[in-house]
Design a protein around this nucleic acid. Structure first.
Lengths: 360, 360
DNA sequence: ATGAAAGCGCTAACAA
DNA sequence: TTGTTAGCGCTTTCAT
C-alpha cells in the first residue's frame, strides 16, 4: 500500500554481488560488452529485472548535465483559447509523443492565454528548466528565435521558419498536395477555380498560390487576377467576406481552393447563407486538413504531415544533443511533402447549369 | 554564443560572501526570516539576481526526492488519432498549463495510437519517471486505477471516476447546465423535446437523462419514453441513425437535446440529409461544448468547465505532494457546475406549422 | 545568525 | 575484467 523506495543501482549491485559502477556500465550498454564478462553481465541484468530497477531520471540528469527535456514553443499568433482552436495544439501533441517515445519529455511555456512571450522570457523559462533543445513552431519574429540560438541551445524551427539563423528547420512543400488537388478538380471537369488565400509576404503563403497557378498552368488553364482572393489573415470572417464578394461577381467559379481550413470554414458559412450547396452547386478544397474532416460536408483537403514533422524535429534535437554532430545536423533542413485527402466536398460541376442563375 | 554554465548556488554564495547553505535557506523562503539577517538576505538576493541564478531542477528533485512531475492519463476509449478528435486532448492541455504555472511538469504515457495500456504498464512508466502523482481522465476500469493507488501514488480521477478507491475526484454536476438548457428551450416555447443520449450504466450517463427529465418536470412537462433515444456509445453514427429513427416517428419534437457533441454532430448530418434546417425547422442543444462552437450552425451547448477541472486536479495533487495533508485531501471530491452557452441552433418553434408535413 | 558536512543516485575517469 | 573515487547541485541536520 505504501510506496516502497524504488530500487537503486546500488541495490542491484548488492544483489548481483558486484560494485555499483559495474551496474551502471552494464545498464548503459555502450561498448560495455568488451568491459564486462558475460557472466556478471547476466547476473546484473537478472538482479535489475528482479528488483524492477529503473534509473532515477533526476540523478541521471544531474550527472550527465542533460535534462532529457525538450522545450516546445507553440504557434503564438492569434491567441485563442484551446477550446476554440484545438487543432492549434495538434503539433504540440505529436511533438510530445515523439519525444516520449525517445525517452525525452516536453515542456511548454505556460502562456497566459493572450500574452505573447518575448524571446527573453522564453529563454529565462527554458534555461531555468535546463532544456536540452527547443522546437519552435512557426515563430513570429527572427529575434525571439535568435535569443535562444545565441544562448547556445539547439533549435529547430517548424513550418514557417524565420530566415535561416543557423537553426535546423522542418518545413513542408505545399506543391505535391496542391498539384494533386488541382489534378483532382480538373479531372472532374472544373475549369474556373478560385483561389482564396493569404496575401502575406512569407514564402509559405506565396508558395501556396504559386503551386496553385503552376498546377493549373500545366493543364493549360490560366488564373485571371480576379479569380484570386487574398485575405489579410487566415480567419473564418475573412473567408466569409471574400466569398460574399466572390458571389457578387460573374461568372462564378465552379470550385474554390481555400488555402487554410479556417478560410474554408468561412467559405462554408457564406455559401450556406446563400443557399449554395457543397458539393452539388460548388466544389470546395481546403488546405491544412486540420478541421476539414469534421466539417459538414467533410472537405477534400491538402494535409500537412504533422506527425512526421514532429518526429523529424525531435530526431534533429536528439541528434544534436546526444550527438557527435558538431555542426552538420545543426543546419539540417528537412522538407516534407503534403498529400491530398479526397472527401465529399468535391464533385464534377453540373453540366449545362450556369451557377449565376441564368441558364445556358 | 556558446552557452556558459548556468550559475549555481555556490556561485551565488561566493559572490555574496556567504556559505552555499545560507543561499539555499534564503532562496527557499520558508521560516528562513528568523534565521538569516536581513543584510545577508539582501546580499544573497542581489547576487542571485545579478547572476541570473535559478536552481537546477534535477538537483532539487534528487535531493528532495520529488520530481515535480505529474503523470496524466488521457481518456483512452475509442482510440482515434488526434487529428480526428483534437478535443480529446483539450483536458490534457489544460492540465499541462495548470501544472506549469505551479512549477510542475506533466508527462503522458506515449500511447501507440491503438494500444490501450494496462494498469501495470502505466505504473511501470510512471514509477520509472518518478512522478509525484497522477491525474487520470475518465478511467475505463477500476483495476487500472487501483494499480497506481496501491503503489502509493496520489491519484485524482477526473469526470467519470471508477467507484471511490480512496482517490480524490474532480467531477462535474450536469444539472445546472441541463436545467438552464431546458429553461431556455421551454422559454422559447418548446414542449416536445427529445433526449438523445447514452444508455450506459455509469452515473454520468444516467445523471444527464435525470437532469433532463427533472428540469422538464419542473415546467410540468412529462417525458414519454418514446421521446428518449439511447445510443450505445457517444458517436456520430449513432446520433445519425437514431435521428433517422426519430424522423420516422410522429409527431416530431420541436427540439432535440443531444447528450454529447458527437451525437449532436450525427443529428446535424441526419437533419441535413432530410433537408431540415437548424434552427428554423428544429432546435438543437448539445452537451460538452467541445465541438459545438465550430459546427454550423454554432450549437447552443452545455459546457463542462475543463479548465477549472484541470486546475483543481493539479491543485489536489500538489497539496498531497507538498502537503501536510496526511489524508484529508486524499479523499477530496470536487464537484463543479456546468454552464449553458447559447448560440445559434435554438429558436422558438414555428407557430402553426406541424413539422411532420401536415398543417394544423 | 551562519557554516560545515552528509548525502540524494548516478556516470565516468582512474586504479588495480 | 572489476572496484574505487570524485563529484553533478541541491537541501537539511548539526555544530558553532
Amino acid at each position: 500500500m505504501v510506496r516502497q523506495r524504488p530500487a537503486t543501482s546500488t541495490d542491484v549491485a548488492r544483489q548481483a554481488g558486484v560494485s555499483q559502477a559495474t551496474v551502471s556500465i552494464v545498464l548503459n550498454g555502450a561498448r560495455g560488452n568488451i568491459r564486462v564478462s558475460e557472466a556478471t553481465r547476466q547476473r546484473i541484468l537478472t538482479a535489475a529485472a528482479a528488483l524492477g530497477y529503473s534509473p532515477h531520471p533526476a540523478a541521471q540528469a544531474l550527472r550527465r548535465q542533460r535534462s532529457g527535456i525538450i522545450g516546445f514553443v507553440p504557434q503564438q499568433s492569434p491567441c485563442l483559447p484551446p477550446s476554440i482552436h484545438p487543432h492549434r495544439y495538434l503539433l504540440g501533441i505529436y511533438v510530445a509523443r515523439a519525444a516520449t517515445s525517445r525517452g525525452y519529455q516536453v515542456i511548454e511555456p505556460s502562456v497566459k492565454a493572450e500574452a505573447v512571450q518575448s524571446g527573453a522570457e522564453q529563454l529565462q523559462f527554458f534555461a531555468g528548466r535546463r532544456v536540452d533543445g527547443i522546437i519552435y513552431d512557426r515563430p513570429q519574429t527572427a529575434a525571439e528565435v535568435r535569443c535562444l540560438v545565441d544562448y547556445g541551445l539547439p533549435v529547430v524551427q517548424l513550418l514557417r521558419p524565420q530566415g535561416t539563423i543557423g537553426t535546423a528547420t522542418v518545413t513542408v512543400d505545399a506543391s505535391p498536395g496542391i498539384t494533386a488537388a488541382i489534378d483532382h478538380l480538373v479531372g472532374q471537369g472544373h475549369r474556373r477555380i478560385a483561389f482564396l488565400g493569404h496575401g502575406g509576404a512569407h514564402s509559405v503563403e506565396r508558395d501556396r498560390l504559386h503551386a496553385f497557378t503552376t498546377a493549373l498552368a500545366r493543364h493549360g488553364i490560366a488564373v485571371p487576377a480576379e479569380r484570386v482572393y487574398l485575405a489579410r489573415k487566415y480567419a473564418l470572417e475573412e473567408g466569409q467576406t471574400l466569398t460574399r464578394t466572390m458571389l457578387a461577381s460573374r461568372p462564378w467559379p465552379t470550385a474554390i481552393f481555400a488555402a487554410s481550413d479556417s478560410l474554408a470554414l468561412g467559405v462554408l458559412h457564406a455559401l450556406y447563407e446563400a443557399r449554395i450547396h457543397v458539393p452539388d452547386d460548388l466544389s470546395l478544397v481546403s488546405h491544412d486538413d486540420v478541421l476539414a474532416a469534421q466539417l459538414y460536408p467533410p472537405l477534400t483537403s491538402v494535409a500537412q504531415p504533422f506527425e512526421t514533422v514532429a518526429e523529424r524535429a525531435v530526431a534533429l534535437i536528439v541528434e544534436q544533443v546526444a550527438g557527435t554532430s558538431g555542426r552538420g545536423a545543426e543546419t539540417a533542413h528537412v522538407v516534407l511533402p503534403t498529400r491530398l485527402h479526397v472527401r465529399r466536398s468535391t464533385r464534377p460541376p453540373r453540366a449545362g447549369v450556369r451557377l449565376d442563375g441564368k441558364t445556358g
